[in-house]
Simulated assay, not measured.
Amino acid sequence: MLSIRTRVMSLVVLASYLLGGCSLFANRTEMIQVSSEPSDAQVLSNGKPVGQTPVSFEADRGEALLIEVKKQGYETQTRVGSKKLSQVGLLDVIGGVFFLVPLLGLLSSGAWAHDPQQYGLTLEPVK
């Protein structure tokens, strides 16, 4: 009969392999929201049109994010987003401290989140 210690260790090892690299299975996209004052301005994400403000669109978590907001008669506003470790990515790091397998999840875009996920811009009239 297996001791309690052996059972616990077996369970921990099994769980680490089953849950290892959770970010590999996480959503690879997330919703980004952009609003402006005045509204009805064109929004471009990484040079591609995504709609008129206010707008929500999906962005790949693994890509850098460049937001441009344009409206005739107003100065173009540009914002560069950064990435941070997502909650699932953080779990991969914690699991990787004990077992190396979960660290593989950090190679996936699911391990990251855009920061910020909401942009509010005030457009200035052209002078």
Rank of each mutant, 00 (worst) to 15 (best):
D92G: 07
S35C: 08
I32H: 09
F98Y: 13
Q72F: 04
G95T: 00
P49D: 07
V50W: 04
A113Q: 08
A59P: 12
A111S: 03
G81D: 05
G95N: 09
S56Q: 08
G73S: 11
I32D: 11
L65Y: 04
D60E: 02
G105D: 05
M31K: 15
S39A: 10
E63D: 14
V55P: 15
S86F: 10
V97W: 04
L90W: 12
L107G: 02
Q77Y: 02
Q42C: 09
K48V: 12
Q87N: 15
K71I: 09
I32K: 09
E75Y: 08
F57D: 12
D115K: 03
V80E: 15
V55N: 07
P102R: 01
G51W: 00
I32R: 13
K84R: 07
G47L: 10
L44I: 11
D92M: 05
R28E: 12
A64D: 13
G73D: 03
I67L: 09
I32Q: 13
Y74Q: 01
Q117H: 10
L103P: 07
G51L: 06
S86K: 00
G73L: 04
Q77E: 12
M31Q: 10
E68N: 12
Q118N: 11
V69C: 07
R28M: 06
L44T: 02
D115F: 06
A113V: 06
T53I: 10
K48F: 13
K70M: 14
L91C: 05
E37P: 14
Q42V: 15
E37L: 08
G96V: 07
Q42S: 09
Q118M: 11
G96H: 08
L90C: 00
P116M: 00
V88T: 13
R61Y: 03
Q42M: 12
A113R: 15
Q77F: 06
Q118R: 05
S109Q: 11
G81V: 09
S35K: 07
Q77H: 14
G110Y: 11
L100S: 06
A64Y: 11
A64L: 11
D92R: 10
P102T: 00
E58F: 00
E58H: 06
L104T: 13
Q117G: 03
Q33K: 14
A64S: 12
M31R: 14
G95Q: 01
P102K: 04
Q77A: 10
D40C: 06
V50K: 05
L104H: 05
L106D: 11
G95S: 04
V50Y: 01
G81Y: 06
P54C: 00
E68V: 15
E58I: 03
